[in-house]
Design a protein around this nucleic acid. Structure first.
Lengths: 165, 165
DNA sequence: CGCATACCGGACCGATAGGGTCCGATTAGC
DNA sequence: GCTAATCGGACCCTATCGGTCCGGTATGCG
């Protein structure tokens, strides 16, 4: 129902965390700080690095670092990095070749205004806006110090988009 | 990738068709007219009827009929009818009870501005707008007269959102 | 110079839900 | 009152997504 993937949600969490902590952070560190399973964090970081939102430093004492300040990153870019380009339908691009059954597709280009509207809405909001919208600074990323993988699983279960629908 | 479900796309096609044809139409008739598999059309109509967007007439010579003109139906309502309420995440409502792990959810209420922005964008566009955005009136729903279920399957394969992603 | 650390890329597996199909309940006409 | 046509709800299958794991490579430290 227009829900975005959990990975995107994780990506925002990770990026905000990355902005608030040390300049360079490891994926295991971010995992324990956010409560997100470490392999998933690595996967998200990988995608973000491929999109150029974060830069990676390999080798010992390596880690990830923000490429740009949060205020200059619209969430549309994060979504595009994780879930691919923002397009509700596929009849959006040049669309000359997409629908071969044009006669049967009575609504060619129908979703275009919707796509552009949503894309604009998503470009207008930056990660900094979402950071402010969260909890007051007193609670800013408390580093829970999880004792065992048990609560980790629980946290992964309810990241901020439980079931939706 | 923020893609909406095929059913929603079908719903728009069906509603536009419903506005263009006779006042009352059967689901098999709409199926042959649009190229969408008949059971799927029935399913969409059912959801639309439950949402009150169309009214059903049971028994012989029954069928479906639009409840309201297209111009008064924002696509947000169609999406809500098919795919459930429009909420990118679940931390949107009162949210007092949703996330029990508040300390671990460092981004409570984070997606709220995004949700509202998208909801507004989707409410501003009505089905009439999408109808105009489609093909010129000359091509308005040609009723293909499909000879066998074979091309029907093909049509269902490429309705207007092939693969997205 | 060798080892430990940490990212990188790929493939793999299970779970969710969307897409599609079928059969029973209901109502209008004959 | 009966028949026929249609809506309504329940069911199953498959595709995609979310999550995990392993080998490879590069860097810093001892």
């Amino acid at each position: 129902m227009l829900r975005l993937s959990k990975l995107t949600d994780y990506a925002v969490v990770v990026l905000v965390r990355l902005a608030g902590g040390a300049t360079v952070q490891t994926s295991p560190g971010i995992a324990t700080a956010t409560g997100i399973p470490e392999p998933t964090v690595a996967k998200v970081l990988k995608a973000l690095a491929a999109a150029g939102l974060v830069t990676s430093q390999r080798g010992a004492h390596g880690g990830y670092r923000l490429s740009r300040p949060l205020a200059t990153v619209p969430i549309a870019e994060v979504i595009a990095a994780i879930d691919g380009p923002i397009a509700l339908t596929a009849c959006v691009d040049g669309s000359a070749t997409s629908c071969e059954v044009l006669s049967l597709c009575p609504v060619r280009g129908r979703w275009d205004p919707v796509n552009t509207a949503i894309r604009e809405a998503l470009t207008a909001i930056t990660l900094a806006d979402m950071q402010e919208a969260s909890i007051p600074p007193a609670f800013r990323i408390p580093v829970p110090v999880l004792p065992s993988p048990e609560p980790l699983a629980k946290a992964a279960d309810v990241p901020s988009l439980p079931v939706a629908k």
